[in-house]
Design a protein around this nucleic acid. Structure first.
Lengths: 345, 345
DNA sequence: ACCATGGCTTGGAACGATCCAGAGTTCCAC
DNA sequence: GTGGAACTCTGGATCGTTCCAAGCCATGGT
């Protein structure tokens, strides 16, 4: 092999194992070992091969390696749906953290698109064509469709988000304890002297919403505060956040509001703006997710910040284990969020 | 071939060409043709093969196909640096649009991470291992390091952003005419009756900044308005936006402000908040990029919206041409942004 | 001196697809 | 009825890597 390659001295095609082998005067397999099992080689042989590798700038061809080892070193991640006008920049921060964490362990991220109407769209193709080694699933709170399906296809995956509806799910997962988040948010307000603290949250059928709400209730009751007339449930949108805020401000006149999301908090801000109330002075507001918006809007919205970087690292760790040991069953990991205090409280 | 596969009836390994061929009673090559060149087959044969494909749920193995055709159908995209606190959600929207546009043409996006300090980090490895067919480069305004390097490595790529510093660059690119954006933003304010319209922009060495600024100047002069004492140059951060706004509000008392970015606009909002001025009533503000923040902050910030979805589609189109015809040299595409009018003006 | 041992290296086969050249059919014109 | 083109289909080689089993060679114990 190692026939003269196509071009002149600037070779268009990348060098192959055979090229390196010829230059180093060893067999293909020895070069392969130099790359994958260096300790099998005698020191001087290894040095010679390394030299040749460096000289040629050799890098194993990914497709060939994938074909043989049945591993692509790619992790599939379905692009979370983009909600215009909703401040869910959280997912973007997660994707970012995940790509970074995965890079450390030699994995890259294959981003794919799926029809938002079909939570399973896109997975099948990648699975069947063995394009990825595993998936990261992010929207478990929308029901366990993806995880159930992936499990049935014997696909490997981890999820960011606990298996809400399947308590017996065996896949590794990482989630953030947002009941605790709501609790520290509420306690922060109590510390600041507030006692009439309202909750603006999501509908009853939202698992995430009930979870967060329970933290507020727990904190209020622990401190002997009443919650009657102070809770509101609505959609996760700015306009419904505003409507909810308007209603609750008229009815019970709370001095502080805890919102289940930054989006709702923005709705509250709209209500305040209209009433010419000053955020952080006339009334305190705490949000959830620590989005861009919370960080930048004056005077800054105090917000519960999920530790996305840590979550990403944990997920990558779980993925590594999972790919090393197919039968790996990890206990779920629950992380605690922190409160970022800003001018709004 | 087509030996009995490992397991029982629930086969763990995905079916291969050979499996389909056996079931359909044809050769491997015929199945391959059924997938890639259906019109080469007789109608009844095609139907039979299709049947077998459907029955087995066959999907070509990506690694094997890549190896043989030297095409991975993956586009590399380096994760843009995440600036905490800066409202550059624009890039996330672009990534999203791009993934979606690429999916339509059968391409997936390989997201990779590179050390923010080294604009070239990450590219080399993917290139040498032939992991991707092409790259999308996004930060051309930081200087043409990436494009120059990629060109020298004979890599295929397109860029979102014009080749600022290399007027003779041959690669396809798509960009948004932000001078025009600044112009329509300014004209919008003029229409609303403003005449003392200030500019809060970036430093002189920012190509992007000068570009945008020129649009403001052009609009002002066209309408016979003076720009003296109304321009300010600073960093792209909230705090410096606030400082610039403070200075210019004290000095020249403009009735409207055009900002080179939403980040600067947020800085302005901070200044207004401190001065207890009401956005959109006491003073008008227009931002750039139409970020989440601009969309959600009450009463909404009028902002220049780059047509990212269209840009993504154009880039994918250029990529297709480029990959089909290696020598393809496209003229750059310049897109016009639109103004999204909100309560701030 | 001989065989077993272990360290190091090797050539052939395989992963699953496509390229290529050729073989078999069909069909029509002469 | 024969030649030839056009249409279908096939088997072998190949992409670049890793797996596998075997080979080579020095070492050391008997």
């Amino acid at each position: 092999m190692a026939v003269p390659r196509s071009g002149g001295h600037i070779s268009a095609a990348p060098p192959t194992l055979a090229d390196v082998a010829e230059l180093a005067g060893v067999s293909r397999q020895t070069v392969s070992n130099a790359v994958n099992n260096p300790d099998l080689l005698r020191a001087d042989t290894l040095a010679r091969v390394q030299d040749a590798i460096d000289k040629l700038g050799y890098q194993p061809n990914r497709a060939a390696r994938s074909l043989r080892t049945r591993a692509s070193h790619l992790i599939g991640l379905r692009m979370p749906a983009l909600q215009e006008g909703t401040a869910n920049a959280m997912m973007d921060r997660f994707v970012h953290s995940f790509v970074e964490a995965a890079a450390d362990t030699g994995y890259h991220v294959l981003l794919f698109y799926g029809d938002p109407a079909d939570p399973l769209d896109g997975y099948d193709e990648l699975l069947r064509s063995t394009a990825v080694d595993a998936f990261v699933v992010t929207d478990t709170h929308l029901g366990g469709q993806q995880t159930t399906w992936l499990q049935s296809r014997r696909a490997r995956f981890v999820s960011f988000g606990r298996p809400w509806t399947q308590p017996d799910a065996k896949h590794p997962w990482v989630d953030v304890d947002l009941a605790y988040g709501a609790e520290i948010a509420t306690e922060h307000l109590i510390e600041r002297g507030h006692s009439k603290i309202a909750w603006i949250g999501w509908h009853k059928d939202s698992l995430l919403g009930e979870e967060r709400r329970s933290g507020w209730i727990h904190a209020m009751h622990t401190h002997g505060l009443s919650t009657t007339g102070l809770a509101s449930r609505t959609e996760d949108s700015i306009s419904s956040g505003k409507a909810a805020a308007d209603a609750i401000l008229d009815e019970t006149e709370p001095t502080a509001l805890v919102c289940a999301s930054d989006t709702l908090a923005m709705g509250v801000l709209h209500a305040l703006f209209e009433r010419r109330l000053r955020l952080g002075e006339d009334i305190a507001v705490v949000g959830f997710d620590d989005s861009q918006v919370a960080q930048t809007v004056p005077p800054g919205i105090t917000s519960v910040r999920p530790p996305l970087e840590e979550a990403a690292r944990e997920l990558v760790k779980a993925l590594e284990e999972l790919l090393a040991t197919p039968s790996y069953a990890a206990p779920g990991v629950m992380l605690k969020p922190a409160l970022t205090v800003r001018g709004s409280s």
